[in-house]
Design a binder for these strands. Sequence first.
DNA 1: ATGGCGCTTGTTAGCGCTCACTCCAAGACA
DNA 2: TGTCTTGGAGTGAGCGCTAACAAGCGCCAT
Lengths: 356, 356
Amino acid sequence: MLAPTNPGKEFWVDHSSPSVRVDRDPAMTDVARLAGVSHQTVSRVLNGHPNVREQTRLRVRAAIEQLGYRPNRAARTLATGKSQLLGVVAQNSTLFGPSSLLAAFELAAAAQGFVVSVRRVRVLDHGSIAAAVEHHREQRAAGIVVIVPTGAADEALAEVPTDVPVVAVDGDLERDDTLVTVDQEAGARLATRCLLEAGHETVWHVSGPADWFDAAGRLRGWQQTLEEVGAEVPPVSQADWSAASGYRAGLMLARMPEVTAVFAANDHLALGLLRAMHERGRSVPGDVSVVGFDDVPEAAYFIPPLTTVRPDFDTVATEALDVLLSRISGERTGSTRRVITPTLVERASVAPPPAP
Amino acid sequence: MLAPTNPGKEFWVDHSSPSVRVDRDPAMTDVARLAGVSHQTVSRVLNGHPNVREQTRLRVRAAIEQLGYRPNRAARTLATGKSQLLGVVAQNSTLFGPSSLLAAFELAAAAQGFVVSVRRVRVLDHGSIAAAVEHHREQRAAGIVVIVPTGAADEALAEVPTDVPVVAVDGDLERDDTLVTVDQEAGARLATRCLLEAGHETVWHVSGPADWFDAAGRLRGWQQTLEEVGAEVPPVSQADWSAASGYRAGLMLARMPEVTAVFAANDHLALGLLRAMHERGRSVPGDVSVVGFDDVPEAAYFIPPLTTVRPDFDTVATEALDVLLSRISGERTGSTRRVITPTLVERASVAPPPAP
DNA sequence: ATGGCGCTTGTTAGCGCTCACTCCAAGACA
DNA sequence: TGTCTTGGAGTGAGCGCTAACAAGCGCCAT
């Protein structure tokens, strides 16, 4: 029985020499045949197994090269039960923070030989998060990173089965036991203190959405700093993260002469604020000082250049990867929290208050 | 031989009733056993095959539910030779355009049941692009999207083997035969004409990096429009995409009183430009009018609000997906180019030139 | 009766890889 | 000389799924 049993699946043409497989990608057995070894030896070469004679190794490598062979990941995943796949769940946003984080994570993961699959959710509700995580579990992802900036997202995460390593980013320090995040409170403290030290009696705050941990943390840090020095805590302007809402808040604040210092929960809010002040004839930093948060690349070119707080998203990403990988390898099992401390970037939007 | 031959691989505990698999995720055969059917029937239910009795279908679904069964994608990929995986090659940037594109693509692909794996490259050189594409081929990606904004990237793409569908985004209209891109020239024409129609004698241009197709297209559109109306074509200020370089260009332009209208190749350049003008005491739009490109969310809150060109990245993404999927299914084979026309968003940074 | 057809279901053979084995030859040591 | 070890290779089973085929059933036309 040398002839193929199924003529429709003839892979080898026997009139050419050497035989050339047609119709499909070369597999390990094809390499083995060409190199005159068994498929197992090919596997050993591919996986860097030590007990292979140098000469054999070279023959196998040559055969791989000649055939243009590429290992089939699906087969490997099936055989080992492990994948080299890392899942990420992120919200559908082009906000600077999340984008930077994602890019840095993808780069770091690729450097470690992992494939990253990103699943975006339109809204941060329970069902969406759960579905996205489920999706990655179906792919047999080795580990999952979930960006959970709101309480609702965090609650969804709490119910995820624990048979696959999961690390939360931007989550709740009180709740998530495996978490990497920026120290929002520390950042807010930096911003607030910077304004107080410039001589302002107190600092006003334009806050991000109340259900975001980032916003809540920045609010807390701001409030605590004021209370520590015995400064009056003015009412908070609620906003979302957009320049538009910063502008609206700014329009109100511009009318109040007692407002001389404002800490905006992010740089885009600060941008809106700057424009409102400008329109209302209040000079920044002459009349009003402003500090932002995020250090977007453009912040240095706002009018005036914005003093802001810079969270190191690269570090957040690499730490998240580090924690995830060590959980995957099983060497870390308890709760692991990493909190990245941001730094203050001083530019030209802060000055002493105007003389009364 | 009822006892397992290998005691180390005992999956079934026979003292409980019904048998419960331990140690591994449930597989199709487990569902089949519980439902009292063959695994093939389970497969048919999962794949929506028509010829399954309703009662059987329900029994299978109940068993799936009870066991918490999730199909193993790796096994399916191996068996079918096809994956539901779409690879994306993108540069490591947090620029607004690429980020939006990526997010929109991921969302659209997920809606179609595809998994998206993103591979970032640090630099857009030949080797990096080739390696990233190769990586996706090794994953047996069903199709690949490559964002190729520069000539070097495009050259690398030209050498990619064609056994997997590839669509280029942001590439060269002259070269790539499967391409989705924004009509940069049309956008630039819109911007330039808008300034000319406001009464300016000519329009200056701050250009993006020369090796980017986007930058080259915008430059061409600008130049052609000026030539069409017989306006003088002033020298171009070369820049990269950053606000910093826009600022530097702006500093020069601010010193030249004959400059009354500037078209910046993107919004960030325009932002830097605005600050330079502001610092040098040239009012926008009183003395100088400015138009940008991209319509970043903050553009409406620049000082003054920026008139700009808006490319619809969502459409680019969905078109790219559409082209890719139709190539994967084999229904489209020839060259397919889709060019998305941008629109002008008029705000407050354009006005007639100052009276001489 | 007999054959054929449509519907439903089961059986079997892979997909390409890894893992746990076995096998063999060449030394080391008693 | 016999036995044990060790490096280098091969063999066979099986990961969980799909595709192709076969088989059983009831129904109709012959």
